[in-house]
């Protein structure tokens, strides 16, 4: 009857860092933490839709922070997610509030996070819509780049997932896909600047 603990904190971190069972880890986190985190938003003037949106941002940030080894020893995964949610929701609420309230109330509500995590959140703000750019690449390019950079698969294994005759052809295709993505980044000055800032500040 209790919360199913399919993954310990240690297993969550190790799965994310080693790209193993990410979808199962996410299912576990949704099952175990979503309701608890949702109450933060609902009890602070947010609605169900806000909760859905913020929770997606929280889980994206959490996975990215773990991959970049910015999540270290600060309390448990549960507490870290709790703090991330409060910070992300109060930042959002601050943006929506009147200028009068902005300077004090919502900032006071935020919990302390380590500096590299707050930096990450600050520079990630402008990168919410990178997916639109990536989506426009087309299925094959998305698949090759995802398998290579996110799943960290070697070319010979990626070959099993796509219809190319050999590794060299696949390598050429990956190069072309990446070249195309870079062109699209260059064509979007705001995104380029945000990415540059994120990279300069250690992401």
């Amino acid at each position: 009857m209790k919360v199913e603990r399919g993954f310990s904190d240690e297993e969550i971190i190790s799965s994310i860092q080693n790209n193993r069972e990410i979808s199962k880890v996410l299912d576990f986190m949704y099952r175990n933490y979503f309701e608890m985190l949702k109450t933060i938003i609902l009890s602070n003037n947010g609605n169900e839709e806000d909760a859905q949106d913020i929770m997606q941002e929280v889980f994206v940030a959490f996975i990215d922070l773990v991959r970049k080894e910015k999540y270290r020893k600060e309390a448990s995964v549960r507490s870290f997610l709790y703090t991330l949610t409060r910070n992300m929701w109060f930042s959002e609420a601050r943006k929506r509030s009147s200028a009068l309230k902005r300077d004090t109330y919502f900032e006071d509500q935020k919990d302390d996070l380590e500096k590299d995590v707050t930096d990450y959140l600050e520079y990630s703000e402008g990168l919410k819509f990178v997916s639109n750019l990536f989506e426009s690449l087309g299925e094959v390019c998305k698949k090759i780049l995802t398998l290579f950079y996110f799943k960290d698969l070697p070319m010979r294994e990626i070959l099993e997932h796509v219809d190319y005759e050999n590794e060299q052809v696949l390598r050429n295709k990956k190069y072309k896909c990446q070249r195309e993505l870079i062109k699209r980044i260059e064509a979007s000055p705001a995104l380029y600047q945000n990415l540059k800032s994120a990279l300069e500040h250690g992401r």
Binding site: V130, S131, F134, T146, L181
Partner: peptide
């Protein structure tokens, strides 16, 4: 940047 866009997406 292209790697960052790929992983975030």
């Amino acid at each position: 940047m292209s790697v960052e866009v790929t992983t975030r997406s």
